[in-house]
Computed example of a mutant assay.
Amino acid sequence: MGIRVRTAVTPHGWWGAYDYRRRLITLRPGLGPIQLRCTLMHELGHAHYGHTGVTGKQETLANRWAAYRLIDFDDLLSVASVEQSSSGVAAALEVMPDVLETYLQLLTRSQLSALRAAALRRVA
């Protein structure tokens, strides 16, 4: 991709930012490991799509791109069979809860059925 990554001050309230012109991702100092991982992947999503601004559609695309790359469906099935809460599943997968939520929205009907079956095995 040819993207540089640095840690530096980001706009207020932002964990990361992507500068298309400079091909540069800036990550806020002090992020925890999971925050850092998820933010970096989100910003790489912006780079992948060549985003040059900030719009709701661009944020959605970057979120989906990141979630799809951070979560493996087989890992999700395994974790869902032992974890009781979505926050527990997210923690076990080492992603932020919103990344898990985004990923769940991308699942097919057959994947959702398999996920429900894994969760039912947990409570049985």
Rank of each mutant, 00 (worst) to 15 (best):
W65A: 02
L112G: 15
R37T: 11
F73S: 13
G32F: 00
A80I: 10
L70G: 00
R122I: 07
G50M: 09
W65M: 03
Q111A: 12
A114S: 05
F73I: 13
V82A: 05
T10K: 03
S87K: 13
L44D: 01
H42L: 02
P11R: 12
Y68M: 08
A66P: 04
E59N: 13
S81Y: 05
A67K: 10
R122E: 04
W15F: 10
G32M: 09
V123Q: 11
R69H: 15
C38S: 15
Q58Y: 02
W14H: 08
A118R: 00
E83H: 07
L93R: 07
V95R: 03
G56Q: 09
V95D: 00
L36C: 07
G45C: 05
T52D: 11
E43S: 10
G88W: 07
E94K: 15
S110G: 00
H51I: 08
L104F: 10
R121D: 07
R64F: 03
I25C: 06
L112R: 15
G30K: 12
P97E: 02
R116S: 14
R109H: 02
I34L: 03
A66W: 08
Y18M: 06
A90Q: 10
R64C: 00
S78E: 15
P11F: 08
E101W: 09
E101I: 09
Q105C: 03
G56F: 13
R6S: 13
